[in-house]
Amino acid sequence: MKMLLKRYKYFLVLLVINIVVYCLYPTVGQKSAEITWSNTVEMLSVIPPIFILLGLLDVWVQRETMIKLMGEKSGILGILIAFFLGSAAAGPLYAAFPIAGVLLQKGSKFSNVLIFIGAWSTTKIPMLLFEASSMGWKFMMTRFVIDIPGIMLIAYITAKILNEKEKQYIYDQAGNVA
């Protein structure tokens, strides 16, 4: 029970804040409760398949296979898979982190996992279609074309700046949280 309270302390503190806001500014508090609720419902509807796929990936895909596909020596194939995995997904960015954790744990190259995160954040296919319909094709295509090298650049610079020890720590950590 005490463990549970400790794990959920931030959530509980925020909940209390929301209640205080509700008492002081009822309209804002009510609106925020409504938004939280609808987001929770949305999250609960989007997330189950993501985590089921994550579980299946973990059990069925061997570490060796993953290293071959997305590991240190995977080259262009690893980059393409990273882009594809990220772009084919649906769901908010924060749902991508646990998957990134499994990818790391299975021996994917660090920059490839960052490319996966980048693709998930900006080049998701359903989002691109929606962007084109509300902002126009020119807007969407310009952003898309420049986002691809941008995502790779961000991934490589981040991977380059981290030293081996820091990277090793992240890989070890991925084994613990995922």
């Binding site: 959530f11 925020l14 929301n18 409760a33 939280t36």
Partner: peptide, 23 residues
């Protein structure tokens, strides 16, 4: 089991994020 464990593992953060977004 793994799917549930991974989910449960980050559920506290998920919930906190959802409340922050709401506010």
């Amino acid at each position: 089991k793994k799917a549930w464990k991974s989910f449960e593992n980050i559920l506290p953060q998920f919930l906190a994020i959802l409340v922050i977004i709401g506010i």
